[in-house]
């Protein structure tokens, strides 16, 4: 069963709860973030709108970060589709950061790459949702489980 997020921008109120819930539950150090929220402008004043986006690792099908890593420290777990980092093998070269289209990889005090792992090992992926999803007041952010054919 593959896991991932769904996001309905028309329901997102840009409250940033998902980002902060993640930081709290994952006890992330300052400056390190596995999820953040962005405001995107469309048009110009007065014909202007803004929409929201919440951003975390997409657990890409064919992850460029995995391909670029010289230490083979990143791998995609086939049974659940989660892209995981082996911190012991990571040398902190940050090649993945340059390869990732969303600049997801984070580097804290230990210098190792870290990012969203869908809370692997922390929640029951079969029946529970991660804290970022659980906190979302409007259910703009959802958790998907899909059978791979």
């Amino acid at each position: 069963m593959e896991r991932g997020f769904s996001f309905a921008p028309e329901k997102c109120i840009q409250c940033h709860a998902c980002a902060v819930a993640c930081k709290s539950w994952r006890e992330l150090e300052p400056k390190v973030r596995y999820r953040w929220v962005e405001n995107i402008w469309q048009g110009s004043y007065p014909e202007i709108r803004c929409v929201s986006s919440t951003i975390a690792c997409k657990q890409c099908d064919d992850p460029p970060c995995v391909a670029v890593c010289p230490e083979d420290a990143i791998s995609k777990r086939l049974e659940n589709g989660i892209v995981v980092v082996n911190a012991e093998a990571c040398s902190g070269c940050q090649a993945c950061l340059g390869a990732c289209p969303d600049a997801i990889p984070q580097f804290g005090a230990d210098g190792k790459m870290q990012k969203c792992d869908l809370c692997l090992g922390r929640i029951d992926l079969g029946s529970e949702e991660p804290p970022c999803v659980a906190t979302c007041p409007t259910k703009a952010l959802g958790f998907l489980r899909s059978e791979v054919e």
Partner: peptide, 8 residues
């Protein structure tokens, strides 16, 4: 649901 303040 909870807002960001709640988590702090």
């Amino acid at each position: 649901g909870l807002c960001p303040k709640a988590h702090a």
